[in-house]
Amino acid sequence: MNESLGVADLLGVLAYAELSAFLQLTEDAGQFAPTLSDRAALSELAVSEFGHFQLVRDKLIELGADPDQAMAPFVEALDGWHTQTRPSGWLEALVKAYVGTGIALDFYREAARHLDPSIARLVDEVVADQERSEFAVERVRAAVAADPPAAGKLALWARRLVGEALSQGQRVAAARPELAQLLVEAVADDQAEISRLFARLTEQHGKRMAALGI
């Protein structure tokens, strides 16, 4: 495997994921936020996502890669995911930002675990979701407490988000084998590590769902 191509692909998909998250959060803030303070808070999160995009873009440039070329192969898949998972309201938008985006970022983190430490640290910094988590959890839990039947609907929405994210990941892996190989080689010939990988992903998803109260 050409690892340099895999690294460029990983940073390219991560850069576009952050750029598209910025655009999605900005749109959601204007369309769905019920109060001005919510609009401001979500906009602030969008600014943070753009900052993450800039970090990854700058790393691509440092490595001698063209950011536009690195991101281009992933535009169709990620835009398709956003189109297929367009929220219909405020709570769906928050669950998407937290659960749907979270599971995709978990895969990027796993793919970077065995790369150069500087790349792994950058990916860890970019995929950290503490601020987004706190914002989504606080508001979704409050809404579910006020309207318990909403929990079931949001749980169904979260399952759909995960399903679409996995489908998107399959399309990306098929189109960019070097990127898929980063994840495969991290667990190659080690069934126990494969099991641990899926256990980690499942655990993280379960924690997010539990935190939301759905």
Rank of each mutant, 00 (worst) to 15 (best):
N2F: 03
E3A: 06
E3W: 06
L14K: 00
A17Y: 01
E18N: 00
L19P: 00
L23H: 07
L25A: 15
T26W: 10
E27L: 11
D28G: 07
A29C: 06
A29F: 08
A29V: 09
G30V: 05
P34Q: 08
D38Y: 07
R39T: 15
R39P: 12
A46K: 11
V47E: 14
V47Y: 08
Q54F: 07
V56W: 02
D58H: 03
K59F: 03
G64E: 02
D68N: 09
F74Y: 11
D79G: 10
R86M: 10
S88W: 08
G89M: 01
W90G: 09
W90H: 09
L94F: 08
K96Q: 13
Y98F: 14
G102M: 02
A104H: 07
F107P: 01
R109W: 06
A111N: 11
A111G: 12
H114M: 11
H114A: 13
L115G: 05
S118I: 03
R121L: 08
V123K: 01
D129V: 02
Q130M: 11
E134G: 15
V137W: 05
E138L: 10
V140C: 02
R141K: 15
V144C: 01
A145C: 03
A146K: 09
D147V: 08
A150H: 05
L154P: 04
L154V: 07
W157P: 03
R159I: 07
R159W: 08
L161N: 07
G163A: 13
A165S: 14
S167E: 07
S167G: 11
Q168N: 03
G169T: 06
Q170V: 13
R171G: 12
A174D: 14
L183W: 03
V184P: 06
E185W: 07
A186H: 10
V187H: 06
V187Q: 04
D189T: 11
D189E: 15
D189Y: 14
Q191R: 11
Q191N: 11
A192E: 15
A192L: 11
L197V: 09
L197E: 04
F198P: 02
F198W: 12
T202A: 15
Q204N: 11
Q204C: 02
Q204R: 12
Q204W: 07
G206L: 01
K207E: 14
M209G: 00
A211G: 13
G213T: 00
